Simulated scan of single mutants.
Amino acid sequence: MTISESSSDRATTGVPPLLEVRNLVVRYGRTGPAAVDDVSFTIARGETLGLVGESGSGKTTIGRAILGLQPVTSGEIWFDGKDITRASVAERRALQGDLRAVFQDPFSSLNPRRHIGDSLAEPLKVSGVPGPERSVRVDEALASVGLPDGSAERYPRQFSGGQRQRVAIARALVTDPRLVVCDEAVSALDLSTQAQILNLLAELRRGADLGYLFIAHDMAVVEFLAQRILVLNRGRVVEQGTTAEVLGNPQDSYTRVLIAASPVPDPDEQVRRREAWQRLRAEMKAAAAAAPATAVANGLN
């Protein structure tokens, strides 16, 4: 398949979104249930969209589909005005500099037998960047995430968990991308390190016209970084809007559950949130159990 140009969504601004996902459906197996069911959203240049949901909600599957790691059953994925839904291997390779990822476990994504500098230089080498320039860009990327001189010559095991996540961010940014998919990029870190990484991501976004798809289960984390939030439950979008709208006036009970589950530093407020979370969970389970009986009674089943 050849990547094709799109002229849609240019009417108002003259520029297409950086990323547009249209009616995305992903199934595992031909007849299996949809892991992602009719999901649509956009990300503008320089914007962060928080994609929020519990484990199994389908958010990681969406990220993998955007990155070309998961086949799409139906729907479309457009990047910078071009349809990349079923791009070939060669076309994906050409995109790798513009579309990057930071995953949850940086240690598993780094080769323990290679210096950090070699791992960061690999995408530059594939893109045809000359050796001397590769070294300069690797050092610049490591410096941009606050790692000390000489880090390029160290192995992954010689860094702390927070430092390894900084390495992963540097590797994502070394090609000067336009969009980074962050899949639970801070969930494995302690709170103080989380704050450092989130501040770093926000700073790097301000320093470049960089967009993020920030995938997470913690509303408090997403609130810090994202301008807009999309809430996913069982593969479907249940709510979306600006961060202020979604967190200040959530319309869906599932969104309220996620907000109540987010940790806060005040112990008393944490107790209240936990109680609210348990109450909302019980209400949702009761409603789900009653739904089939109600459908039968109304002649809908």
Rank of each mutant, 00 (worst) to 15 (best):
M1Y: 07
E5C: 03
R10M: 06
A11K: 04
T12H: 08
T12A: 10
G14R: 02
P17H: 03
P17V: 04
L18S: 08
L19Y: 06
L24V: 10
V26T: 02
G29I: 07
V36F: 05
S40R: 14
T42Q: 10
G46R: 13
G50W: 01
E54C: 04
G58Q: 06
L69P: 08
Q70P: 08
T73M: 04
F79T: 12
G81L: 05
I84C: 11
R86Q: 12
R86Y: 14
V89Q: 11
E91D: 08
R92F: 03
D98Y: 09
R100G: 02
R100S: 14
A101V: 12
V102F: 05
H115D: 10
H115E: 07
I116H: 00
V126H: 12
S135C: 03
V136C: 04
V138F: 06
L147H: 04
A152W: 01
A152F: 01
Q158S: 01
G162A: 00
Q163F: 00
A168S: 12
L173F: 15
L173C: 06
R178H: 14
D183N: 06
Q194V: 01
E203K: 14
D209R: 09
D209Q: 11
G211F: 03
H217L: 03
M219P: 00
V221W: 01
E223H: 08
A226V: 05
A226P: 09
L232V: 08
R234V: 15
G235C: 13
R236K: 09
V237H: 01
E245F: 06
L247Q: 10
G248P: 04
S253A: 15
I259T: 04
P265D: 07
P265V: 08
E269P: 13
Q270N: 11
W277P: 08
R279P: 09
E283N: 11
M284T: 11
A286H: 15
A286R: 13
A288D: 14
A288L: 11
A289P: 02
A295V: 10
G299Q: 13
